[in-house]
Design a protein around this nucleic acid. Sequence first.
DNA 1: TCTGGGGTCCTAGGACCC
DNA 2: TCTGGGGTCCTAGGACCC
Length: 424
Amino acid sequence: MFALVDCNNFYVSCERVFSPSLEGRPVVVLSNNDGCFIARSNEAKALGLPMGGPAFKFREVLKQNRVAVHSANFPLYGDMSARVMQTLSALAPDIEVYSIDEAFLDMTGFSRFDLESYAATMRKTVRRTTGIPVCVGIAPTKTLAKVANRIAKKHPASNGVCVLRTAEAIKAALAMTPVEDIWGIGRQWSRRLQTQGIMTAADLAAADSTWVRKHLHVTGARVQAELNGTPCLAIELVRPAKQSICTSRSFGKCVGTLDELQQAVATFAGKCAYKLRREHSRASMVTVFTGTSPFEEPEARYWGTRTITLPFPSNNTTTLLNAANNVLSGLYREGYGYRKAGVLVSGMVPEDQPGTTLSLFGEEESPGDRRQQELMAVMDGINHRYGRGTIRLAAEDDQAWKPQQEQLSPHYTTDWADIITVRA
DNA sequence: TCTGGGGTCCTAGGACCC
DNA sequence: TCTGGGGTCCTAGGACCC
């Protein structure tokens, strides 16, 4: 049996932990730049505010209903997530952290437990130690655990817990799950299934498996098998190293000059290098992209992306920053109002991989340059101790393109300055 | 009449997840 | 005025190898 523990309206719940006056009120959390809704309280959902909806189109609804609006505060959410996951780790031997607000727990070995009451204990424990409300779904496969969790969330009578054990319980659960709500079935595939008359998870479970394999490929075939109780997906205890790392932002205002764009790209490259070091990886390719808003008139629209291969895989801030800047120069076109840019690094190699091939001509930065590595370690150490951004390369700067965050809550758990402000 | 069989690597595009 | 950010996997097709 697998348990899926999923936090309710996670970002909203994080804000509520520190502002209890938000309880019972409609609350939304906005994406970077205060653009779209990325989390909604149940009250906000009831007002018809859609996930991903652009906030400016709903300004009247927000005002009339006195909706509490918060800018995204990812350092806070990341820290709260870590606390939830730590609590869950103590409740089951094997846990897979699936996303910022979800974890799968391996319930093998709990066969003699009353799973309903154990799940209720998990909810209570997480609530007590972190303040975050969660729902628990338990079933014989991960996909069925997702189905169970959805039912636990949707039906107040379940008290936040749904265990699917018997064939009858599973059958009933599948019948009440629309096909578009199945984990792994997105918009395209649900449309395709619906035209075949496959409307619910029960229909998909019973569908012709040859047809499913042909049109939904192995991924869809796996979903079908999992719905029928055959586990195809295991708990992944160790997260595999990332294959690509991306840092990108929309800008708070239009950026026109190459100089300003360079500051943004330098900052993103620096962030990518830091994330690489944290992963103990090096990247061998650097991609830079930038462009105008996609909602711009066609003649004023521009989107450019370009990739280069580094002479050696690297996670050095200076190396990646120089590379990204070179790529950007080839991408930049004068006369556009740039609204977004990003840096993506890929072609990862483990940091400790021995025997990296040397250059035939030997003029590039040596891949294992000890002094550079020590410099990066010192930089990371200072930033860890005194806060992010305490020390950085001069080229990194956010003055020109800083995203808008007008409703930002304090960093209650990760920034001394904010904690002191709260107390005052 | 009759033109093999078995592979790898890379890329682009399309789907999906949170 | 105003529309997020960060990932993964799969398939098909083309190029190459012996």
